[in-house]
Design a protein around this nucleic acid. Sequence first.
DNA 1: GTTGACCTTGAAGTGGGCTCCAAGGTTTAA
DNA 2: TTAAACCTTGGAGCCCACTTCAAGGTCAAC
Lengths: 158, 158
Amino acid sequence: MTGLQAPHALKVGELAKAVGVSTDALRYYERAGLLPPPDRSPAGYRLYPPSAADRVHFIQGCQRLGLRLAEIADLLDVRDTGQCPCEPAESLLRRRIVELDRELDRLTRLRSDLQAMADQLHGADCPDPDPGTWCPPGSKNMKEVTDDGHQKGLPLLR
Amino acid sequence: MTGLQAPHALKVGELAKAVGVSTDALRYYERAGLLPPPDRSPAGYRLYPPSAADRVHFIQGCQRLGLRLAEIADLLDVRDTGQCPCEPAESLLRRRIVELDRELDRLTRLRSDLQAMADQLHGADCPDPDPGTWCPPGSKNMKEVTDDGHQKGLPLLR
DNA sequence: GTTGACCTTGAAGTGGGCTCCAAGGTTTAA
DNA sequence: TTAAACCTTGGAGCCCACTTCAAGGTCAAC
Ligand SMILES: [Zn+2]
Ligand SMILES: [Zn+2]
Ligand SMILES: [Zn+2]
Ligand SMILES: [Zn+2]
């Protein structure tokens, strides 16, 4: 409506509301090199072009994929040059998939460990143990010791 | 061998080496309330009883389960009182399992999204796009826009 | 008696992605 | 005219589990 500086320019709060992030986050993206320094109004207010909204959407999409801001900045640099983005994007994605597989593996094993512990706990007859010397509740291996000679704690808490 | 202060007392470096953490971490655990303040030698050196090693092992085991230090501190408090630990342990475990399930779900969906993107990327014929206007590589929906009227980026990067 | 490995303390730094604050200047509506 | 609602900046704070630093004191070996 104003049209003085540029058509449809957005002040920082307007952009923030449009894309659903805080104004602080937008200024942070600028410092981090994800958003180029926008034009300023005579009073020094940031005036973003409408395309900035797409840029922030892109950032948000990348974040949903688990990419870090530094990686997103790399992608945006490529995007700005107009070069084919497939190569960097593909290697980023593959790296991230490998990370995810490792993490999924770790969490899956962890989950089954926790489940095993919780199951043991549930059926336990449980007299109070000696203070400071757990007491694997309901376990027959209370007296077992680890290879360095210490008493075992809860199962898997060696 | 010394036996002056206490039998088999460990200096901080000895305990650290025995359990495989840094001396700084041990002092940090003390500040955080996970390790009780140990006796001191005349020179002010920390002298840990051998049971401190078990305590640290317990901490490490809990950490492997993904528990935070504050939660571990709660468990240790119970352990020190000699009360039956099943109740707090069980609710901690259940809470953690729920967290894990949510996280596993999230990561699994993420992984399949990334895989889909990587697959699209691979078979793409790819002319360089216009700068700043990606260019969903190899996608037929280049012209699609999101519900707020902006151009779509890479698939799933809306 | 001197080197060097150990120990002490409090404070500050790390990383990631922000958030919050103070102390101002600007714009807009009443 | 003045209040409210915006905007600016630099810098600090947050979370977590540490690590690193600075500036010393202590203890063993040679
Ligand atoms: Zn391409
Ligand atoms: Zn042990
Ligand atoms: Zn019990
Ligand atoms: Zn949009």
